[in-house]
């Protein structure tokens, strides 16, 4: 029981830190790093429940899907960030408030 709680709390810490990064950072790439931290936190929870919560190997498969989705998400997000840089000259998320130039 304690082991499960330990892993869940580590996941909660990573989630909180990722959220902190997302809401305080100005650079779009730093925001992306926060998203990655949150996805890692969710993966830790999946694996913890598959090890200690009777979820067995299904948790592993789910975390595999999360990892794949994170890779796809990063590729598309970086393409958007590079586009933003070409159009606005900066990657500050505050500058990207208008959808049309």
């Amino acid at each position: 029981m304690d082991q499960l709680n330990t892993y869940l709390i580590i996941g909660a810490i990573l989630f909180s830190l990722g959220l902190f990064g997302i809401i305080t950072r100005r650079n779009a790439i730093a925001v992306l790093m926060g998203v990655e931290l949150i996805l890692n936190a969710s993966n830790i929870n999946f694996i913890a429940f598959s090890r200690f919560g009777g979820m067995n190997l299904s948790g592993h498969v789910f975390s595999l899907f999360v990892i794949i989705m994170a890779a796809a998400e990063t590729a598309v997000a970086l393409a958007i960030v590079i586009n933003l840089y070409n159009n606005l000259g900066s990657v500050n998320v505050d500058d990207a408030a208008s959808l049309k130039q």
């Binding site: 790439i29 994170a70 890779a71 970086l78 990657v91």
Partner: peptide
């Protein structure tokens, strides 16, 4: 999953992020 984490996150996503930093 640990091996996948190393291969995809460290080898793929992080390299992409560093590319993104260098390009922007």
């Amino acid at each position: 999953i640990a091996a996948t984490q190393i291969v995809i996150y460290v080898g793929g996503i992080l390299v992409l992020i560093i590319f993104g930093i260098m390009l922007t």
